[in-house]
């Protein structure tokens, strides 16, 4: 049937791309754990991914915490549950909004930058030049970025958690008239280690996914500027979708009953 052909072709192409990505990821992870390791390059990527993402992640977190407190107040006031706001803010930020929003922001900032940089290196033969200089591009370009993504995202999210909770605190105290001591006590009493840990695990996975998709699409980009542009778009879109999918599975792993 002619209608089945494009569906089948699309499905086969999806399977091929999945296999290709899996092989790429396996090769990259293998190079992350086998010497030689490049500490200087890992440090440089940690600064690029972690330090330079702090402003955008911090701003996202503080406004998210502020909006969350404000929205929860207007909703919870309908059934006199305003006292649950500190709990809602801290749980939402640490479990969900901190890692997911930081992940999406980093996907836009870092994933795009990685894909554009590696993609440009591919189309200008710089990756071929690395190879001819007996330097494995996976070790030199990809492993440092994956290691930096995996390690810096949890730190970024931990900072985002603190800033987000602080945003909720500021709005609750100065706008909604909460008692500062009671607000902090409720926040600290209610939050559990598992809430924070699940968020940090998500952050590590998202950091890996963002850098992996940036590297994968950049490394396999073709053509000239158009190819690099397409690689950048694909890196951000695929990383964002994967973040939302993996968010569900990790939540299921930690909290499903």
């Amino acid at each position: 049937m002619p209608i089945l052909q494009p569906i089948g072709r699309t499905f086969l192409r999806f399977l091929e791309a999945t296999g290709h990505l899996s092989l790429f990821a396996a090769t990259a992870v293998g190079h992350c754990v086998r010497p030689p390791i490049y500490p200087r390059l890992i440090g440089r990527q940690m600064i690029a991914i972690g330090y330079y993402s702090l402003p955008v992640v911090g701003l996202t977190a503080i406004f998210t915490g502020m909006v969350l407190a404000l929205q929860s107040y207007t909703g919870f006031a309908r059934f006199s549950a305003e006292s649950a706001i500190p709990n809602v803010v801290v749980i939402s930020i640490t479990r969900e909004l901190g890692p997911v929003l930081a992940g999406l922001m980093v996907a836009g900032r870092v994933g795009a930058a990685i894909a554009a940089e590696i993609g440009t290196m591919r189309v200008t033969e710089q990756i071929d030049a690395l190879d001819t200089l007996a330097t494995n591009p996976f070790k030199y370009l990809i492993a440092p970025r994956l290691i930096a993504g995996l390690t810096m995202m949890p730190i970024l999210v931990l900072i985002a958690d603190i800033i987000g909770v602080f945003g909720g605190y500021v709005v609750s105290i100065y706008k909604l008239g909460f008692n500062p001591y009671v607000y902090l006590k409720h926040t600290i009493d209610f939050v559990e280690v598992q809430d924070v840990v699940s968020g940090l695990v998500k952050a590590g996975v998202f950091g890996f996914l963002v850098t992996l998709m940036g590297c994968y699409h950049g490394y396999n980009s073709k053509g000239g500027a158009e190819g690099v542009g397409a690689a950048t778009t694909n890196a951000v879109v695929s990383a964002s979708i994967l973040i939302l999918c993996f968010n569900y599975f990790i939540t299921e792993m930690f909290f499903a009953r």
Partner: peptide
């Protein structure tokens, strides 16, 4: 290389 392929970074 034809374009020299120097590392920009």
């Amino acid at each position: 290389f034809q374009s020299a392929a120097l590392f920009d970074s």
